[in-house]
């Protein structure tokens, strides 16, 4: 075997779990509140940024991604990269359909 197999899983301190929980609740409140403020086109950006931060917290701490092998991180990265590719290349068609009558 060439990958490093952690013999024992990392035990995360309870304080971390509760901290993450509080942070997630705060972010939920924040994103809901900010939605009522008119930021123009930045509303979407802020909402998605907060969602990404929340998702990262869940991934890194609740799902122990911070403490598991790098291979797992690679797979998660690949999944989001592919999702981005699917959305990105599809949108490349949608947004450019009206250009110059093409």
């Amino acid at each position: 075997m060439t990958e490093h197999a952690a013999p024992h899983a990392h035990v995360v301190p309870l304080a971390v779990y509760f901290g993450v929980f509080i942070a997630l609740l705060v972010f939920t409140g924040a994103t809901t509140a900010i939605a009522f403020v008119d930021l123009g086109r930045f509303n979407v950006a802020v909402a998605l940024t907060i969602a990404v931060v929340k998702a990262s917290l869940v991934l890194l701490y609740f799902m122990h991604l911070r403490y598991t092998s790098r291979l797992t991180l690679v797979f998660v990265g690949i999944a989001f990269f592919w999702l981005g590719t699917m959305i990105g290349l599809t949108m490349s068609d949608i947004v450019s359909r009206g250009w110059f009558g093409a």
Binding site: W82, T85, D93, S96, A102
Partner: peptide, 22 residues
């Protein structure tokens, strides 16, 4: 192989710019 799928859609209404990329 995941980045080329639009070449099936050159004549089905896909934008010409997306077709160029694909």
């Amino acid at each position: 192989g995941f980045l080329v799928w639009g070449h099936h859609m050159f004549v089905s209404g896909q934008s010409a710019y997306a077709s160029l990329i694909f």
